[in-house]
Structures are given as C-alpha cells and as structure tokens.
Simulated assay, not measured.
Amino acid sequence: MGKIVVSENISVDGVIEDATGDEGLGRGSWFTWITDRDREEWAKAEIAEALGADALLMGRRTYHWFIARGWTTRTDVWANRLAAVPKYVVSSSPLEGPDWSNSTVLKGDVVEQVAALKQQVDGEIVVYGSGSLVPTLIEHDLVDELRLMTYPIVVGAGGRLFGETSLVKPLRLIETRTIGSGIALLTYQPVRDA
C-alpha cells in the first residue's frame, strides 16, 4: 500500500505560496533569503527525497510550475529521477502544453482517485506544492506523513498550507533535522487513534 507524503517549503507562519517569487504576489522570494550553504543542503535533502519516491502526486498548477521551470529538459540526477517516476496529476480539465514523461491525469472524485492510487502504488507517493490539493487530502485523512521544510521567515500574508478542517487533526512529530544553518525539516505523522 502506498504512503502519501506531503513535502512542502513553508515559512514559520505557514505560508507556502510564492516561495520563489515567480507568482509576483509581492511577498514572494522568501526562498532567496537563505544562504548558498543552506540552499546546497536543501537541494541534497530534496534529491534524497526524490530518490526515495515511488510516485509523485500533484495538482495541475504545480505540474505546470515544474514544466515551466524546465524540469522536462533538465538532465541532472534530481530531474532524471522526477522524470522517471510515475506522476499523477489531479485536474478537472485536460493538461495543456508540453507533457512530462510518465504522467497520468486522475479524473473524477479526488478522494476516491487518491484512495485508489494508495492501493495501486507500493511505497512513497510524494506531493510537492499543490496548495489546493493538500487541504483536501488532509481533510479526508489521506496524508500519511508531512515533511515541512520550514524557513526562518515570517511572510505575513499569502496562501497557507493549513486552513479550516471539519475536525481537529492531531499530528505526532517523528523527526526534526536542521538543514544548513537555518532551515528546520519537521516530519509529522497523523495520529489516527486520537
């Protein structure tokens, strides 16, 4: 059975939107505030996570974000791994533009499709970004692990990872790790017996 792992770059105040400033929201580019050393350590952690992934799950906007930034033509270890793994894209409309190898669109009810995907894939199904998809997965208890790459910055505004839920969603901290000199990688698992 598959394990849904949400992997997010997130500010201390929970913002996940526009980390690189590409979306032009005025408070982006907080990713660029980290040092070169931190960025190198971050990349090592991200590559290791990609090498451990058995599949990727993402929303349509995140899928297009990767394509627009050249991930379909890059040839480094990280990009090659992401190209090789199956990619499942949640989209209510057909994908437009260039294709990324090994991509499948999940159509229909998101909760049913992702639950079925967990039965089909053996191993880690990593979810990058996907700010609209992740809250749905959390709400329906489909997330098995949260890996929050937490940046030492308060953004103050922007799309946040966590919004309203129908119930309290308790989590258990299972690992903390410092990335570089200032990023905290916090890993949580849902407490389902609470």
Rank of each mutant, 00 (worst) to 15 (best):
P98A: 14
G21M: 03
W100N: 05
V105S: 05
R74G: 09
A53V: 06
I4T: 07
P135R: 01
E124I: 06
Y128T: 00
L133M: 02
S130T: 06
V134Q: 00
Q119L: 10
T75S: 15
W100R: 04
E96G: 02
E23G: 12
G131E: 10
D36Q: 07
T104Q: 05
S29Q: 10
T73C: 09
P135M: 03
L57H: 02
T32R: 02
S11L: 07
A43K: 05
K107P: 09
V77R: 14
G2E: 09
P190S: 11
G131M: 02
V143C: 01
G159H: 11
W65L: 13
L161A: 09
G52V: 10
G97Q: 02
E124H: 10
Q120R: 14
Q119K: 14
E164D: 15
V90M: 06
W65A: 13
D13Y: 04
F66V: 05
L171H: 08
D99A: 06
V134E: 01
N80I: 07
Y63P: 11
L186R: 08
E145T: 11
R69A: 11
R37W: 13
G21E: 11
Y88I: 08
D36R: 01
T104E: 13
S7Y: 08
Y188L: 03
A68W: 07
N80H: 06
M58F: 00
K107I: 13
A83L: 12
T165M: 12
D99L: 01
H64A: 13
D22N: 15
A184L: 14
I183E: 08
S11P: 10
S130R: 00
E96V: 05
Q189I: 13
A48T: 13
T187D: 08
I4K: 03
V111K: 00
A48P: 06
L56W: 00
M58T: 08
